[in-house]
Simulated scan of single mutants.
Amino acid sequence: MARINLLPWREVERQRRQRDFVTLIGISVAATIVIGIAVQIQFAHAIEAQTTRNNLLSKEIAQLEAKIKKIEELEKRKQDLLARMGIIQQLQESRPTIVRLFDELVRVMPEGVFLDSLKQTGGNLEVEGSAQSNARVSTLMRNIEQSEWIEKPQLLLIENKDKTGTGLSQFRMSFRQKLTEEAANTPPPSKNKKTNRKRPQKN
């Protein structure tokens, strides 16, 4: 005997489809949540790894900056040493010239003229002193003009002995040193030997 289903089959089918749809939605929501959690965990791990790398880089940068600072200090010390060595070498090279200069000053200095100070800037020299008369200052300038080692005398200041009240005229004069290789390497002439240059005048 055949069995007849008297229940409305369409309603049963509709309810079954609704249950399947709800189940599918639940599965989709659960999958989305799981995927979201997994992505968040992955991002968290990536951020943590990047933070670790940043900290490591910051530490290495700090060490590198310390090394750079030390290198800069060493470079500065090196430059200071090179500058000192240059000054020492310059002094050694100019020592004969300085000796020759002082010897020439003695030779061009007439009687009655006294130097109080001498200042040298490169090849320029400036002297201050006193003289028994203005004529002796003029003689000093002529002697400088005739010298082979110093030149271009220029009188910057002179005060007559009447103004100074010391019985001596005060003067300030500048001149130039002839910084030639021959002048630097030629020794001063011996006082016992005759020279071809004119003898400084004395007044």
Rank of each mutant, 00 (worst) to 15 (best):
Q42R: 06
E128L: 02
V12T: 10
P189I: 04
R107G: 07
A38Q: 06
L179C: 02
I41M: 14
N160W: 04
N185P: 04
A38S: 14
N196V: 13
I4H: 09
E182H: 05
K194M: 14
E111P: 10
Q15M: 07
T32A: 15
G26M: 13
T186I: 13
S169Y: 00
A49N: 13
A135K: 05
L168N: 01
I98C: 10
E111Q: 12
A131D: 01
M141D: 01
Q15R: 11
P200I: 10
N203K: 07
K78M: 10
I150F: 03
L155C: 04
G36I: 03
T166G: 00
Q177H: 05
L101K: 10
K152C: 06
I98T: 09
K152E: 10
F114A: 05
S147T: 02
K69G: 11
S174W: 00
D20Q: 06
A44G: 02
K152M: 12
A183D: 13
L7V: 15
R172N: 10
R95Y: 13
Q89W: 05
Q18G: 13
M109E: 07
E182M: 04
L115A: 01
L91C: 15
E73P: 04
L6D: 07
L115D: 01
N55G: 14
T52Q: 11
K194S: 11
T139E: 09
N185M: 04
T164P: 07
R77S: 15
P200D: 09
L82E: 15
A38E: 15
R16L: 15
V137Q: 10
L56F: 10
K198L: 14
